[in-house]
Write a protein that binds this DNA or RNA. Sequence first.
DNA 1: TGGATACTTCGGCCGTGGCCGAAGCATTTG
DNA 2: CAAATGCTTCGGCCACGGCCGAAGTATCCA
Lengths: 222, 222
Amino acid sequence: MAEVAALVGHPARANILCALLDGRALTATELAYAAGVSAQTTSGHLAKLRGARLVDVCKQGRHRYYRLTGAHVGQMLESIMAVALTGPPRFQPRSKADDLIRHARTCYDHFAGELGVGIADRLIARDCVVLGNEAGEVTDAGAAFLTRLGVDLSGARARRRVFCRPCVDWTERRPHIGGAVGAALANRCFELNWVERVRDSRALIITPAGHRGFMEAFDLSV
Amino acid sequence: MAEVAALVGHPARANILCALLDGRALTATELAYAAGVSAQTTSGHLAKLRGARLVDVCKQGRHRYYRLTGAHVGQMLESIMAVALTGPPRFQPRSKADDLIRHARTCYDHFAGELGVGIADRLIARDCVVLGNEAGEVTDAGAAFLTRLGVDLSGARARRRVFCRPCVDWTERRPHIGGAVGAALANRCFELNWVERVRDSRALIITPAGHRGFMEAFDLSV
DNA sequence: TGGATACTTCGGCCGTGGCCGAAGCATTTG
DNA sequence: CAAATGCTTCGGCCACGGCCGAAGTATCCA
């Protein structure tokens, strides 16, 4: 047991595992970037994670795709995060980049930060979405609203992943909307050019069109 | 997050946390024995665990009693165990103590092992309890049955914690009943003197009265 | 076929963190 | 008040494990 915990207990490996948390499979190079260490160091970490069956690998050409071995690993990571969040507030140097990332960012493939939590709040207030502790659901009114916005809900339903789930935001410490719905909504916002990615970061910039759009659609000023 | 995992990821600290897993409060010296290191080393570990709010301490005379800060820490430990057990099979010397703990033990504050899983199985078979993946519920028939047994269900409902939830058993690899209901049921069994704690262990001994009681109440021979 | 890309293995350097002996407080007991 | 007990702090030793540079496989592409 200590071995498993020790594997998660190193920043580089924790970053790798978090990057895999949404179930996608990523290549070793992508994970090296996420971990912030060199490719050969990452390779060593991945070998250890594989040895403990925390991640699986599948070869495709010259790429190797890594993924979590199963939901139980994801649940473990979530439970560790939950404990970490109840811990003592940590010292966090404020910086320009920090403010950006607190303001709006992606959480794997959906929105987080003030933007993500704000959207979730509005959708909940309008009875478009119901979020429980472990799961969530889109109401009929919510489905109509999102469809009107151009979000591909039927595509989202067809995917094998969880349709709608709450995802605790690590800056706001409140839930935002994850799962296939969260991803589909984020996709649509990218299409509409409401947000743009910041290079080499998970941070997002909200375009002028985005400011108008989020205000019109969600009555949300960001 | 990596910090929390790193704390759990050392054998000495993992032992300390496991020793606390049944919810009892233990003194620093007892924990030093459980961890297998000297008192001063243990003191250092405990200071770190306390710093991360994984354990709480309360002074009583010249003793200091340590306990887990809450159920969320216990759940995290269980989920790590669950992952550790799905990993590559490890060499495990079988011992008398091992058999005991596999047979019947406490899991935080409810029953686990063959006993815990057996009880869960019978309650499910009789439609007294329904267990999902993340949550569970007690049926009306179940409430009547447990009340007849003397379990304090209304007290359990009044508490702020999750009422009924499945808890994956790390030896049986199947769910047993946790949450407030699991705790209340365990309490009642202690009251009835059906089980007794084994010193310095989470293992339980089923008394002769317990053998009769579990057979009569649950049709369960343990 | 040869070079580029993706990934792993090897080897050596270095720092963090664990460990215990000794000493220092705090509390209880005689 | 002194001795014993429970626990923590301090200091120094040591080793495990992380990190990267360099070199070695495997695969793709022109």
